[in-house]
Design a protein around this nucleic acid. Sequence first.
DNA 1: GCCACCGGTGGC
DNA 2: GCCACCGGTGGC
Length: 324
Amino acid sequence: MERDHPDIATPGKMDQNDLQGSNPDLNKVNSEPNALRVSTSPDIAETPTQKPAEKVASLAGEQENQIRENEENHSENAQNQMVLYDPAVAAAGEVEPLRARRNSFQNYTSRVLPSVGAFTVQCASCFKWRLIPTKEKYEEIREHILEQPFYCETAREWRPEVSCDDPPDITQDGSRLWAIDRPNIAQPPPGWERLLRIRAEGGTKFADVYYVSPSGKRLRSMVEVLKHLEEHPEYVAQGVQTSQFSFQIPRPLQEDYVKKRRPAPSRDGPSDVNPISWVAPDGNTGLLLGGPGPSAPSDTASLDVLDGNAPKKPKLMGDSDSFI
DNA sequence: GCCACCGGTGGC
DNA sequence: GCCACCGGTGGC
């Protein structure tokens, strides 16, 4: 079972560190039209992060600009975005040894992958993030996000009094891994479940989408869906169509969450990368761990990404379901 | 033996 | 560069 069914989200604690200060993506967040965001946070951390007022301010400024732009563009460019985040599961505290760099043999100890912990959508008007109580509701909103932008008022369905005057339910503060989800993905057929599995950091791919049929069959590509439908005409008879499936995965806001593919070897030049450079073991150079500090330039607010330790091992709850 | 997860690549 | 697809396999 894996179901990831979020109940309400409870944001975990936050960690802190933004990756580097600048997170170019932050801006994108507000500026990408209709992007949906997802975030997960693997780690644990505990220190609350408080962000410097500066950052906050800048963020606000950006939002204002965005709003302005948005108004200018009218709704043409609705900007609602959705996010999923994983409250960290934090439970335990320990972090584990991470996966070592790829070449080392080391046993990888348990790796728990991050999973989506909750879902949020950005109000098209005030740009505050509102948590969506269930995955199903999130999928419903996402399906029509372009034509039906999300507003704080929309959340009154489950939060009767909420409005743009209320503080955001969650902010991008570096404590979680955020990713941009795709808009307008069809809801899965009744009885089917669409699963998003976030991969460990440093791999070649950010996530995988799987569909689980009513009978429990896990399908990982459109080719498999087609084949499965051919083998089970009853689904087709029930109205299941291929247009109800989408294997599009969200994009992590943290660049670098996914390892880039190595450039082709150019043979001519000395391309060099230093042959000997050292890399800190796991990259953990000091970056992470965070501390409190913010150091970063303020401009971009930090959005963040996951925390620093994350790279290593994300801890999560059991895999499956943990949405919290 | 199964399967969740990962790597890798062909095709765009 | 991105992404759909799928082979391989570690870990159970």
